[in-house]
């Protein structure tokens, strides 16, 4: 038997998803999209819908990352590399957009 190499489908000794899992995940994602559309078309108050849509997007993001990109089975190093980029991007761009809001003078009345 050959020695362990990557490509062995045990990710970091934490197993791996099976065909069934992948299909279920895809179904779950489709359900979330359907929910998004339902909320989008049926619910009225924007203040409620925007956070809901944000949460749905985050759920889809999380599911794809942890299953289809199998981060939950794989080495922490990968997770950290990806998260460092993601967290950095979210923080600097939130700060940037916030500065645009702060720098805009209040409309004169």
């Amino acid at each position: 038997m050959k020695e362990a190499r990557y490509g062995d489908f045990e990710y970091e000794g934490r197993g791996h998803p099976e065909v069934r899992d992948y299909v279920q995940i895809a179904v779950a994602l489709c359900v979330v999209i359907a929910l998004e559309l339902t909320v989008y078309y049926l619910l009225a108050p924007v203040a409620l819908v925007v956070p809901l849509l944000g949460i749905f997007a985050a759920i889809k993001f999380f599911i794809i990352g942890s299953w289809f990109m199998h981060l939950r089975f794989d080495s922490r190093i990968f997770r950290r590399l990806f998260l460092s980029g993601l967290v950095l991007a979210v923080s600097v761009f939130l700060a940037t957009l916030l500065m645009f809001v702060l720098a805009t003078p209040p409309p004169r009345t």
Partner: peptide, 27 residues
């Protein structure tokens, strides 16, 4: 690659670093 320091594949570290970079691009 099974002799690498972390025991992980060079290719996979590279792609995850690159995807981290892509977060800033699309951000």
């Amino acid at each position: 690659e099974h002799h690498t320091s972390t025991g992980l594949s060079n290719n996979k570290i590279a792609i995850w670093a690159f995807l981290g970079s892509e977060c800033l691009f699309f951000g």
